[in-house]
Write a protein that binds this DNA or RNA. Structure first.
Lengths: 196, 196
DNA sequence: CATGTAGACTAACGGTTGTTAGTTAGTTGC
DNA sequence: GCAACTAACTAACAACCGTTAGTCTACATG
């Protein structure tokens, strides 16, 4: 530990995520990363195993965080609309505390090697859970009857792109943003939505 | 011209866009591209100037297409809701006829060099026009009074992600998709939306 | 039949890539 | 005060990168 309360390894991972966001995994060299940390490329290997390992750490930890969040939401005993609001909050919260990593999760997952299959299974399960919630909401007449996949896709792509947009809006706090976004994303599909 | 009705250069650009979509600009080598075309990397240079030039061609032509589309929509004399529906159709149409290129537009624009500034200005103008349409819709009480930037962001990120999702849904035709998507994206913010 | 051109090829270039080996200075624990 | 550990360094590696030069073949045009 140092004065900032994070180990050198955590510092490297965080800086890597930042650079990966700006230029993408493939365009960032180990020498770029080292320079951003005021060290030489070879020294990085005192802390990490490989460049590939950096990407794996960044992406998998985030993907598992989403999976855990979805499990909690699935098994919670609230209305469908509240479950959707909880999903919005889940994305807002994770994106706020790891904006950089979200870029890799969205754009560089295909450069995972050993962990690619595992990542894809997590993503598939997440999307299936999401679409199931929407379907049950349509059955319960809480959600208006449109194509469930289109609804899911529409909401999820917006949430996935939060990392691009959130840094520009740090005047909004977390709760405010989640509420605002929830209004726009959910009121539109809410069966009982009031328009006046 | 050959039997497929496209020049070799066009074939190279199209294949490049396909590979850029799968792995990103930086991760695709000229040898990868050549192999996908059953030729050697050096032979590519009988048709193109550079790798950078491929990216420029793919991205700038698409960005200009969006700009032209927005100009037409801006100056058209229809309701705000119909303008939004026209924007949805613009994205669906362009994405259908150039799914691969849309990936580069979304993910690899930062690797433009000489044309980066020009691209950013096109994007900025597009987003400003978009948000202006939404603001005037709120004033005209055609759109419900939420944060215009959040509404724009929410719609635009969904439209920008169409390239990921459209290939999985080629059972839907163009008009059907544009209508479905328009319903989900626009009814949600429509001030006069009817929920029953 | 001669000539020009389109489009492929091989070979090679200078630079960059991720990574390893081996070394060294500073700090910690006994 | 010596040993062990941490974390930096220099030097170098083999592989790969985008690109150029120069050559060869097939075909169209006169």
């Amino acid at each position: 530990m140092n004065t900032t309360g994070q180990t050198r390894k955590e510092e490297i991972i965080k800086t890597a995520a930042k650079l990966f966001k700006e230029k993408g995994y493939s365009a960032v060299t180990m020498r770029d990363l080292a320079k951003a940390l005021n060290m030489k490329a070879a020294s990085l290997y005192n802390h990490i195993d490989s460049k590939q390992d950096l990407l794996k750490t960044i992406i998998i930890s985030l993907a598992e965080e989403f999976t855990r969040g979805m499990e909690t939401i699935k098994s919670s005993d609230v209305s469908i609309i509240d479950k959707l609001r909880a999903i919005v909050s889940l994305h807002v919260n994770i994106t706020i505390h790891n904006t950089y990593g979200m870029a890799s999760l969205n754009n560089d997952w295909m450069h995972l090697e050993d962990q690619l299959e595992y990542y894809l299974s997590l993503r598939k399960n997440y999307e299936e859970d999401f679409v199931e919630i929407i379907k049950s909401g349509i059955e319960a007449r809480e959600i208006r009857d449109s194509n469930p996949e289109i609804i899911m896709f529409s909401i999820l792509t917006t949430l996935r792109s939060l990392y691009l947009w959130l840094p520009k809006k740090d005047d909004l706090n977390r709760e405010e943003l989640a509420k605002n976004l929830g209004d726009v994303l959910i009121n539109g599909i809410n069966h009982q939505s009031i328009t006046e």
